[in-house]
Amino acid sequence: MDPFLVLLHSVSSSLSSSELTELKFLCLGRVGKRKLERVQSGLDLFSMLLEQNDLEPGHTELLRELLASLRRHDLLRRVDDFEAGA
């Protein structure tokens, strides 16, 4: 399986429902409101961002910004580990 997708799945499974709600709010300018209403998990949101090329294995800035906004430094370390091994 693609290591970047494994990372996104790992991050998604670590998010609380309130954190997902916050991420959806933060992505309002990037993803349409109707699409965001269908998001049920972090993976749903990340999939939309992947489709729009806002997220890519070599383009993790948005993911970092979102996780920093949540103050999830543990998840930021996972992104660091991914990039160190990528």
Results as ranks from 00 to 15, higher is better:
68 A>I: 15
31 V>W: 04
57 P>F: 13
52 Q>R: 09
20 L>H: 00
1 M>N: 07
17 S>V: 10
56 E>N: 15
28 L>S: 14
55 L>C: 07
61 E>G: 14
12 S>V: 04
70 L>W: 00
35 K>C: 06
63 L>Y: 01
51 E>H: 08
75 L>C: 01
43 L>C: 07
19 E>S: 01
7 L>N: 02
67 L>C: 08
49 L>F: 07
18 S>P: 09
6 V>D: 05
54 D>S: 10
77 R>E: 12
36 L>C: 06
62 L>V: 12
82 F>Y: 14
10 S>Y: 11
37 E>W: 06
70 L>P: 00
26 L>R: 13
47 S>K: 15
75 L>I: 05
7 L>P: 01
34 R>F: 13
33 K>D: 09
38 R>L: 12
19 E>F: 01
47 S>W: 09
71 R>D: 13
8 L>G: 00
34 R>Q: 13
48 M>R: 06
66 L>M: 10
24 K>I: 04
21 T>L: 09
54 D>Q: 15
14 S>R: 08
82 F>I: 02
5 L>A: 12
8 L>Y: 01
39 V>L: 05
15 L>T: 00
13 S>E: 12
62 L>N: 05
21 T>M: 14
48 M>Q: 09
8 L>M: 05
30 R>T: 07
26 L>A: 10
72 R>F: 00
1 M>F: 06
32 G>F: 03
85 G>S: 12
75 L>Q: 02
1 M>T: 07
5 L>S: 14
45 L>H: 01
69 S>V: 08
39 V>W: 02
37 E>G: 10
33 K>S: 11
28 L>R: 14
70 L>Q: 04
9 H>R: 15
39 V>T: 04
28 L>W: 09
19 E>L: 01
8 L>D: 00
79 V>C: 06
75 L>Y: 01
19 E>H: 00
25 F>W: 13
66 L>H: 04
75 L>S: 01
25 F>Q: 15
85 G>K: 12
41 S>L: 04
48 M>D: 05
40 Q>K: 15
4 F>E: 00
27 C>A: 08
37 E>L: 09
66 L>P: 01
39 V>K: 01
41 S>A: 06
14 S>W: 00
35 K>H: 09
24 K>H: 04
9 H>P: 00
75 L>V: 01
66 L>F: 08
60 T>V: 11
26 L>N: 09
23 L>C: 05
80 D>I: 08
19 E>R: 00
